[in-house]
Design a protein around this nucleic acid. Structure first.
Lengths: 212, 212
DNA sequence: AATGCTAGGATAGCGTTACTATCCAATCTT
DNA sequence: AAGATTGGATAGTAACGCTATCCTAGCATT
């Protein structure tokens, strides 16, 4: 198909597709002639993926590029791909770094939970930043207090890791790792909000006040 | 204290504080004279809150304003404040809206879970958008398949709702509702990533011992 | 009271991000 | 043959979140 067809099927403007081509998010089409290129279903698939990462996870375009490059890199082990994707998701916000105390707190928390991370995992820092804020708000940050969140996180993580088809072709597994890390995270976040609303309605009654 | 002292203690540039004042995120100080205003600890507190919402939750400045206005509104019931905050968090990303099928799917999911939301809750739409993407990726979106995430979400939501000091002064409870919705969400997200890494290291990692 | 520094307020400017629009010559379609 | 379309290059735009500059008025010191 040509670019306009790709635009039609993906629902993205031609100009945007050209932009993604320029940014290297979408590989170039097969050049048929000097002014024509042929795009495949793989391109469409790729655009859908980009759209998901942008719309749902709100990842910056440059970060999407990093993740896609990792997905495409046949040499990269899935474990490393997971790391790249996590870094993209975790690190896409803010620039401030965690306090020393926060990092120690995070390390202690992980130790208490018996969760072993990689030596230099950037997740420790992301976690430390959150703990810094909680501490600043006077909330407890010890393992016991945070256990409900840790248990919930661990439970979904186990399911998600089970879900990776390690026996399947790498491309397929890589795709699921990247998408799953992002999308199931968002799913969990949205379900949490929905659950909050359901719980609060259950408790404080649906007849709380006359809505208009 | 004067503005420069406020800047020093909050770690924010004076120009930024002025910007927040203009945007209405920070209430004006007590005017001592025509060119001097006195700021209190409450202002410092407020700045810390703004910083948390910006740095951690990455909420747009305008959205932070909406949430803060709701926190300040003594007339607003906590239930409504929760709704405002959730909308801020859930809706701060993307602009695309969910498909009709996605909305129906979301409604079905909530029904199967026996979660009752408010009539016109925007969460249905946010959830539908996520389900749309999952469906597009060929992932299952029925209640049974998604139960692990729903259970995890419900579990933390229960704890979080228990955590709101409904008997305390409204200002305090309101503060916790707003901050908690955002910060514990981020905590959960980060813990999930950490758990993913811990689980995958346990399973595939270097020096992994079959811990059975 | 003169001097100099800071505060507060208004306005304008800047850097980044993510597109979007315009051109253009080379095809392609009919 | 002729109008439309394509790929590619380049430039422009809009939103966002600050940041910098001005200016006048007061405070603080001498």
């Amino acid at each position: 198909m040509r670019i306009s067809e790709l635009a039609r099927q993906s629902g993205l403007p031609v100009a945007t597709i050209k932009f993604y081509l320029r940014e290297g998010l979408l590989p170039p089409g097969d050049p048929i002639s000097r002014t024509q290129a042929e795009y495949s279903d793989a391109h469409l698939e790729r655009l859908r993926l980009i759209k998901a990462l942008r719309d749902i996870a709100d990842l910056p375009v440059a970060t999407v590029g990093t993740v896609l490059a990792a997905v495409d890199d046949e040499e990269m082990p899935l474990l490393d791909l997971l790391g790249v994707t996590q870094t993209a998701v975790a690190g896409s916000k803010g620039t401030a770094s965690a306090s020393q105390a926060g990092v120690e707190l995070a390390a202690q928390l992980l130790a208490d939970l018996e969760w072993t991370l990689m030596e230099d995992s950037p997740l420790v820092d992301s976690l430390a930043r959150v703990l810094d804020v909680l501490r600043g708000e006077g909330e407890p940050v010890d393992a016991e207090s945070l256990k409900p969140w840790a248990d919930a996180a661990r439970a979904v993580a186990e399911v998600e890791m089970d879900h990776i088809p390690v026996e399947a072709p790498r491309a397929e597994a890589a795709h699921i790792v990247a998408v799953g890390t992002v999308i199931y995270g968002e799913l969990l976040a949205q379900l949490r909000l929905a659950a909050q609303e359901a719980v609060s309605l259950d408790r404080f009654g649906p007849a709380a006040e006359p809505a208009e």
